[in-house]
Design a protein around this nucleic acid. Sequence first.
DNA 1: CACTTGGTCGGGCGTTTCGG
DNA 2: CCGAAACGCCCGACCAAGTG
Length: 609
Amino acid sequence: MLLTKMGDQYFSFEVHHGGQFVWNPQVAYVGGKVDYVGEFDPARLSLFEIRDVYYKMLGGTGAIDLYYRWPGYTLDTGLSLINCDADVLKMLEMYKGLTVIVIYVDKLMDPLLVMSSNGEILLSSPVMPRGLVIDLSDNDDSTGVKDFGAETITETEVEDIGDENLTEVGDIGDENVTGVEEWARKECDLSDADSEDSDYIASEEDNDEISDDDEVSDDASWMYEDLEGPEDDIFEVNSHRRVDEQPQPQPTNTDVNTDEKWYSNPEDEENLSLKGSSDEEGDGHPEFKVKIHMANPILVEGMKFTGARQFREFLKEWNVVNRYDIEYKKNESTRITVVCRYGCTWRIHASPIMRTTTFQIKSITGEHECGRQYDNRQANSSYIGKKLLDEIKDNPTINITSFKNKIRRKIMVDASRIYSGKQPPHAGSRTRAGRGATGRETNGRGMTTSTGRGMTTSTGRGMTTSIGRGTTRRGVTTVGTGRGRGAGSSHPSIGSSSQPVGRSTGRGVTGRGRGVGSTQPPTGSSSQPIRRGTGRGVTGIGAERGGKASSSGPVGGPTLATVLQNIRAKKQARVTWMKWLRALLCCYFIRSYLCGCYELMLAAAMQSF
DNA sequence: CACTTGGTCGGGCGTTTCGG
DNA sequence: CCGAAACGCCCGACCAAGTG
């Protein structure tokens, strides 16, 4: 039973709300419930009508982000933020011909606002932890902090909708705009230009597939008419419709309404603290949430993650955002110990909670006393690639300087030198082949291994369409070979000139760099038994080598071009694959045709005999 | 006080990855 | 293919807190 009449393109919404996005490890929407509201006229739909679906029809409160799932896709592969009306148009275009649009409501922490004494908002920073308003008024009894969200709730209060299972369409003639909406509008406007960077969660592979075609086609003009007519109440078509009359949801296998332990009650998100512990379990420790914490990384002792990998990703984000550079003392599946690369007292240790796979920050000690770093090696090519992939796709001819500036602007990382993924140790470490005191810190390639190295993240090997392997080597496309070293081979002289002599002694004193304290002599296994000789993607922003990089001879030179090349190559690889696929299909059709002809001829011959 | 448990840390070494 | 570098598993030592 669908509420829509296809000819008129009316549709309804399948609204997932009250839950939240989690990453475990795929993106899923857990908790909450599903309501169906409709029917709507696409010609009269805008972002704020959709928001009103949540605020006024479903009684929602607080700041939210709205997402829609691409029809036929999973949350992992096709989820877009509805950030502005252009996104609404995209969504409608995607859902053209369909009758139920699946949207997800992701509750946000409210923004940190700095207010003057007369209530004027002086500062609103989406970067800062949301949920609090710093009140600079002279009100003595005020702590200077008040809950912005609570006010919002009163402003957005809707009439009691009664039965939990019912959703009634309230009066939406009220043009009052809540503070949250106001903020959301502002944020949308601000982020409009950059929406390409952040407006959806999707795998890179699918990203390429779909976003290449992310422009609203001309056919979307059917939605432009009377988009926001003042008296055109989009809801009046179906006001006071009972939810239990809603249509059946479209088939989906993406909703994961699990009761995973690490998932907290979304209701608790109302009680947000500056510390970032927006979602606390019974033990009072916050849990990592992709949508919230990756956009607003705050490290909190006791914070929980689904695993070491997630913790690493988050730590990387935290370091890049805060522009600290770190060093992994231990980086294992069961423990991760990280210190400041520049010798500060700051240290963090995380390990799994006993008898669970949940990773938890066990301790954060000391503080960063170093200055902010603009050459954070955590922001490696993989990281930058993810951040700026769309930029490159939109502007494939971008030059190095522009790209560098983009990186500097968007990620606040100085990409003046993007080194090859594997770097020789800097001059200061030659004698011990170790980096730092213990010598085993990650270096060069950084911590990219867990997620793939260089630009090969999410790509893999063999028949890959990746950038690293099987892409371009000296301009030769090697898709499908599983070999090739990507663009890295375009950077000669990386190692040889600065490699310490006699390094082949293995892991003992020099080989693996156990550091100064190592008394282990070079063992018989100094030459490594396994030589797989794979060679893959490249790159990794090596940042600086303690300021000695340049003195250690050629450091591989800037491979920023490599990043660009990799990103382009990724697209190129896909194109190449498409060509191969087309060729294959052509062969198949020709063969089928020939077989068909042959059979016809055979039949004719049989008849003639 | 002895024992247990959990966390932290350093080190050994096999495996994997990458550039040449 | 090779050497080098990095990752990650494993082990043991040490320490602190809890418990009997």
